[in-house]
Structure formats: structure tokens, C-alpha cells
Amino acid sequence: MKAISESHYWATNKNNSKENYQLSPFKVMVRKEVSDHVRSWRFILLLALVVLTFFASLYISMSNIRATFTNTNDPDHAFFYLKLLTATDGSMPPFHILMSFLAPLLGITMGFDAINSEQNSGSLTRLLAQPIYRDNILLAKFYSAMLIIATLFISLTLLMIGGGLFLTGVRIEPQEFLRILAFALLTMVYVGFYLSLSIMLSVAFRHAATSALTALGIWLFFTVFYPIVVNLAIRAFLPDAAYLTQSETMAYNELILSIMRIAPGQLYSDAATTMLMPSIRSLGPMSMEQLSGAIPLPLPLRESLLIVWPQLSGLLAGSIACFALSYYLFMRREIRS
């Protein structure tokens, strides 16, 4: 090591002036986190999976678009770009259904070791010894991941619209564009929920493996086991439908749907389907009286947004609750590794 007197190591720092460009610590952390995500193999693999899924479902939709477009029995047949995301020949589920599986994985992958890996490696103590607010670390982790997710989905959306325009020459209607944009935003919120959940678990558990397995367990429970449990409960506790009046049947159906909507995947599927299929008029059971006289026309965007507002609020509330809990846990956390 050289003697300190050999050169003026801080000479330039002494000349600090307001004109000197400085980044805020939050921006510095976000930049570093984004760079880490982009360079990590697990993100690259998952990104490839999402992009492949997107192009595969787009290819299948394009292959069947003629039949779909000319099917006048389908009230949504005229929405060419929406059909690109929803039409399928049965060989693989449409993109929005696939996303209800892949989006949680994306969120979990980007957040399960956000805090605990830093704590275990000892870098968290170093980081917190710098003049930065503790909550900025948590916020930077969330913000950077959301930035990447937003970039990914907006790019995919624009790619789809551009590809559709290029291949078919069909002009996109503003309403279609807004619906697709709303679907992309909805998907971001859905990924954000699982991201927020996995960050919370990374604060709660010391080991990254524990937080990853817990997050995957929660995802599996809501995706696979929760509908089974609800079905079993319905069979065990609900009376035989043959002995129920119409209003009682409606009430029970509402109850079942409400229970199902505890699952974030259900909220996302409901909202995504409504945004991509303008003909959907309600997400709950409807009586024949309600349906009679209704004109079979697609709903305007505003009406569809009103229908999905509770679902969107539910997902946002879940994300905020998880983030608030991680904030609470992290701020009280002893940082010694």
C-alpha cells in the first residue's frame, strides 16, 4: 500500500461545486439493480420463456385469425388485435391465460432474494453504512424490478401491434389499443403483487431458498389447490341446488365467486378476460331477466374498466399490503449478518 502523502487523493473532491453532476442515492441503487437483473441468468431465462410464449400464442392466433375474424357469431370478432391475444385453436391456451401462470414466476424470480442475499453476503451492512435511507433500499428493489417488467410488457404490446400492422395492414382502433394497454398494465400489477410478496418473504426469511419455496408454495396453493379446496367445501357445505330458489342459487354463486376471488390469479383472469373480450358484460352470475333485452354489443372501454375496477383494486391492495409489511419488517430489522 502506498503512503497517503504520495498524491492528493481527495484533491478533486475538495473542489465540489453545485455544478458537478450527482445522482441521488435512490437513482444510483435503481440503476445498479436494473443492471443486476438484466445481467442475471435467471431473469434472462424467464424473459426468454415469456417472449417465446408470446410469440407462440401470437403465431397460433395469426394462423386462425381468418376463421376468427369471419365468425360473426362471436361478438368480439371485429377486434382484430384483441383476437391476436385471445384466439386459439386449442393447441395451447391464449396468451393471457399463460400469463396468469408465468407472471407470478416472473415476480417471484425478481424478488425472492432481494434482501436476504444482501444480508447473507454482508453487503447490506456496507450499504446501510452509507448516507441513504433504509426504506430507499426496499423501494429501489421494487422500483427497478417494476421498471424492467413495465419495459418488457410495453415492448411486447408494441411489438404485437407493430407485427400485426406489418403482417396484415389492419389499422388498430384506439379502443383496442387502450384495451391492450390496460391489459399490459393489469399484467404489470399482477406481477407487482407477486414481486411485492416475494420481497416481503426475502425480508422475513434469512435464507433465499426458504423465501423462494414459500413464494412458490403460495403461488401453487392459489393456482392449483385453492380451487380444489373451494370446490370440496362447496360440495360439503352447500345444499343441493335442486332445492334452492333462483335467488338463493344466485346468492350462493356470488358467495362462491367471492371466495374464489381471494386468489390473485382469479382476480387477474377475471380482469384480463374482461379487458380483452369487450362482449363480457358482467363477472358475476346474471339472471335471465337481466339478460333479456340486452343488446349483444361490445361494452365501451369505460364500462369494462368499471367492471374490472374491484379486481384491479384487490391486486393493488394486496401489493401495497405486502410492501407495507416488508417495510415494517425491514425497518425494525437488526442488520448484523
Binding site: K2, T12, N13, N20, Y21, Q22, L23, V28, K32
Partner: peptide, 25 residues
Amino acid sequence: YMARLNGLPEKDIIENARRFMELVG
């Protein structure tokens, strides 16, 4: 990264960092 978190001017960061890397061998 740590220099940036401490708000050191962007202009001098790389140069200073190299100097300190040299200082500590």
C-alpha cells in the same frame, strides 16, 4: 457504486476510484 451513494460528483468518481484502488494496492 459506494462513491455514487455518497453523492460524490460524477465527474471525478472514476478517476478518484482508480486512485484509491492504487492507494490500497
